[in-house]
Design a binder for these strands. Structure first.
Lengths: 200, 200
DNA sequence: AATAATTGACTGACGGTCGGTCAAGTAAAG
DNA sequence: CTTTACTTGACCGACCGTCAGTCAATTATT
């Protein structure tokens, strides 16, 4: 028997080595040849570890998701000066922030691809992303319920919050919308004092 | 002098003649060659009227969506026996209904194109879609306020409702989500008895 | 010797381009 | 009024460049 490489590990390595490439050029503008070069392997080798180009992109996006998750977790757990409300705002604004501008743009492209070719793999990947975020949202909301910032049943609003957020991502990309303002209004309505849209 | 064709008219004609093709296969699975064949013109001629493939699809979509908007308005007005709550549910569900399957699919394709090429045209068009949506929603909500089904400030929730709806369109397309159930829960939460997600 | 891993030349499909043809219109000449 | 020469824009499809994905050949490991 020859060496058996850890496929999962190698996938990650390939993804890591072309993360920058993707951020810089976008999904549509990178080629598999470029990816192979950046990873210092032959193009054929790529296909030993990924079924197709989309899979590579997913793997890289997963890296971004993990990074954002870490960012969020730190903000939520190590920052007890923040109220639940502030944490929620931070949570919802993060992807729209300047710091994640490039990642946002890639995610947008991902949505675009997924919308017109929703293969089982794509769907599974997206559901996976959701779940990661819902876990964090749940933590925030539970904290809010504990210290009476939120009503018990706020936990049931998680999917609705996610739909809102997805819709906002779309509209910030396509429409003429200010994410910060919309999120502010939304959070106000969630936290009781419904002044949503007051200053539109 | 040679003949001068009405470019705008011809664009429409080309778009119309490959409407079925788009509905049947989706943008990703049709080729420009196919479009040309369906329109009974040469491939090169296509590019006399459109800058690229996306533009063709966009033209088709514009034709479609205009019609959908009219339909929606009529559908809402023809159902005056319904309560505000029922109207709202009806309105939000409409695009997810079996009857609007094709239209839903087209709108999905539009979102896909717009997400990765937000030209002034696409943005303007989408803003236009928003406005139509909001106008209809406003009518429904005003009725609800009049007959005490809804609180005054419900009108301020219109943008939020729209984001929710857009997010739902995306998630129904890419995720594993039941539109009817989510809309039911959402409407419950809007109309006061927050049992959102009760039976998820 | 056997098997795993790697590779880059190759292929087929597709979006977009370009040189060229043609029908319809104009105008000068007869 | 015809005829002939000329102009123009619509139309075309062969061709081009690009790129995702394949595969036969090669190298590395045990």
């Amino acid at each position: 028997m020859a060496i058996i490489v850890d496929k999962e590990e190698k996938r990650r390595l390939i993804a890591l080595s072309c993360k920058g490439l993707l951020l810089e050029n976008g999904i549509k503008n990178i080629t598999v040849a470029q990816i192979a070069k950046a990873a210092n392997i032959g193009k054929g080798t790529i296909y030993e570890y990924f079924a197709n180009k989309d899979e590579i992109v997913f793997e890289i996006i997963m890296l971004f998701v993990e990074q954002i998750q870490d960012d969020l977790l730190i903000a939520i757990n190590n920052n007890n000066t923040l109220s639940c409300r502030e944490k929620m705002e931070y949570f919802m604004m993060l992807v729209f922030s300047e710091a994640y501008k490039k990642e946002f743009s890639i995610y947008k492209e991902f949505l675009s691809i997924a919308l017109c070719s929703a293969t089982p793999d794509t769907v599974a990947f997206r559901v996976n992303c959701h779940n990661s975020f819902e876990v964090i949202l749940e933590t925030i909301i539970n904290q809010g319920i504990e210290n009476d910032e939120l009503h018990q049943n706020a936990i049931a609003m998680i999917p609705m919050i996610r739909y809102f957020h997805t819709g906002l991502i779309v509209d910030v990309s396509i429409g003429r919308v200010n994410a910060h303002m919309e999120i502010g209004s939304f959070i106000n309505s969630i936290f009781g004092n419904i002044i949503y849209g007051e200053n539109r």
